[in-house]
Amino acid sequence: MKKLFLIIGAPGSGKTTDAELIASKHENITHYSTGDMLRAEIASGSQRGKEINSFVSKGLIVPIEIVIETIVTAIKNASTDIVVIDGYPRSIEQMTELDKYLKNESEVELVSVIEVEVSQDTAFKRVLGRAADAEVVRADDNEEVFLNRMKLYIEPLAEIKAFYTKQDVLKVISGEGTIEEIVDEMDNFIQSRV
Rank of each mutant, 00 (worst) to 15 (best):
D140L: 08
L157R: 00
S54W: 03
K125M: 02
M95K: 09
E93K: 12
K58L: 13
V118Y: 03
R90H: 01
V111G: 05
A158C: 00
A162R: 14
K103R: 14
V72Y: 07
A158P: 01
V116R: 06
A131C: 10
V172D: 07
D141Y: 09
S174Y: 05
I92V: 09
I61R: 04
E109N: 15
Y101G: 06
A131V: 08
E144N: 13
I85D: 01
L110K: 06
G175M: 06
A74H: 03
K100Q: 07
I173V: 15
I154A: 05
L152N: 14
T96N: 04
F124M: 13
S79A: 14
D121V: 06
A123R: 08
I61L: 14
S119M: 03
P156L: 01
I66M: 01
E135P: 03
K166A: 14
T70C: 00
Y164T: 10
V137S: 05
A78Q: 07
I71H: 01
V72E: 13
N142D: 12
N77L: 10
D140Q: 07
R90F: 02
A134C: 05
L128M: 15
I61P: 05
F124Y: 14
A74Q: 03
K103I: 14
I160Y: 01
I85M: 02
P89W: 05
N77Q: 12
V56E: 04
I61S: 04
E105R: 11
Y164L: 11
Q120L: 04
I61H: 04
V108F: 08
A131Q: 11
T73Y: 08
E69I: 03
E144H: 10
V137E: 09
V127E: 03
I64K: 00
V67D: 00
V108R: 09
E93L: 09
D81I: 07
F163V: 02
S57W: 11
T73I: 02
I68D: 03
V111L: 13
F146I: 13
Y88F: 15
K161D: 04
E97Y: 10
D81G: 11
K151W: 09
Y164V: 11
V72P: 04
N142E: 07
A123C: 10
F124A: 06
D141K: 09
S106D: 15
Y153N: 05
K103E: 15
T96S: 00
V111C: 11
I82L: 06
I92Q: 02
E93P: 02
